[in-house]
């Protein structure tokens, strides 16, 4: 007989930036733990089904996993409609995103089942925001999957995104795993090289994996960008990295 296993996955509320109530999808294994935690930062297309599934995947692997809706303030409705509104508005402000991510981290740290370790994972714009959150402090591990615009030219900066995340690298307070596709146009290989150089320069613990034959978003099994071989290898490396840094 197999050992009993189960999980709970549900919408909850966390205190985000400025104390705002933020919806979050929360999945956790049943049982007393102790379990490590992970905050999942959704991609630019929004707080969608893929992120629900990814959150449950982390719970399946033994993590207290929470995915806050970073588009909470931009309306309700289908994720693609909300994402379109956010896109038209130039994205969400970095300060706000980091506040929502930190609020989600505090939610996990307050749970009785926590082992005291919390990581942050994000893809696409969420990879960039995971990097920002890692530099803001409080996390024990960072996973940046193909986050674009960590390296930014001056004309790419905006009121909402005033600082290139790479400029915060000195403050990065946790080991970081980076997964990138070599055919990606954002970030390009040159961007990834620049980020790696900054991490080296500041003596940070990093582990980068760059995949040939893959571009942006190669984990998304429901999109043509999906690359099964690279994705399977990436998930394996990701869970190994988190186990190394988040086990109690």
């Amino acid at each position: 007989m197999a050992d009993y296993e189960g999980m709970i996955a549900e919408i909850t509320t966390v205190k985000g930036h400025n104390g705002d109530d933020i919806s979050a999808y929360f999945a956790r294994p049943l049982g007393p733990g102790p379990f490590p935690g992970v905050v999942l930062i959704h991609h630019a297309p929004g707080w969608d089904e893929w992120y629900r599934e990814a959150t449950r995947k982390f719970a399946h692997h033994g993590y207290l996993a929470i995915s806050p809706n970073l588009y909470e303030r931009d309306g309700s409705g289908s994720p693609d409609d909300v994402a379109a509104a956010v896109r038209a508005a130039g994205g969400v402000a970095d300060d706000q995103a980091v506040g929502d991510i930190q609020g989600s981290m505090q939610f996990l740290r307050a749970l009785p089942q926590t082992n005291g370790k919390v990581g942050v994972f994000g893809t696409c714009s969420g990879g960039r925001q995971a990097y920002l959150a890692g530099c803001a402090g409080g996390f024990d591990a960072v996973v940046n999957c193909w986050g674009g615009r960590i390296v930014m030219s001056d004309d790419e900066k905006s009121e909402k995104m005033p600082v290139a995340p790479i400029d915060y690298t000195e403050n990065l307070s946790a080991p970081i795993l980076g997964l990138f596709g070599n055919d990606d146009m954002n970030p390009t290989q040159a961007h990834v090289n620049a980020l790696e150089e900054a991490l080296k320069q500041h003596g940070k613990h990093y582990e980068f994996h760059r995949y040939d034959g893959a571009g942006h978003g190669f984990f998304y099994y429901d999109r043509p960008n999906y690359r099964i071989e690279q994705a399977l290898d990436g998930w394996e490396k990701l869970f190994r990295f988190l186990e190394e840094h988040l086990a109690a």
């Binding site: 630019a44 130039g90 905006s158």
Partner: peptide
Amino acid sequence: MCTWIVQTA
């Protein structure tokens, strides 16, 4: 989406 560059009319 990943660039946030949008033209408008």
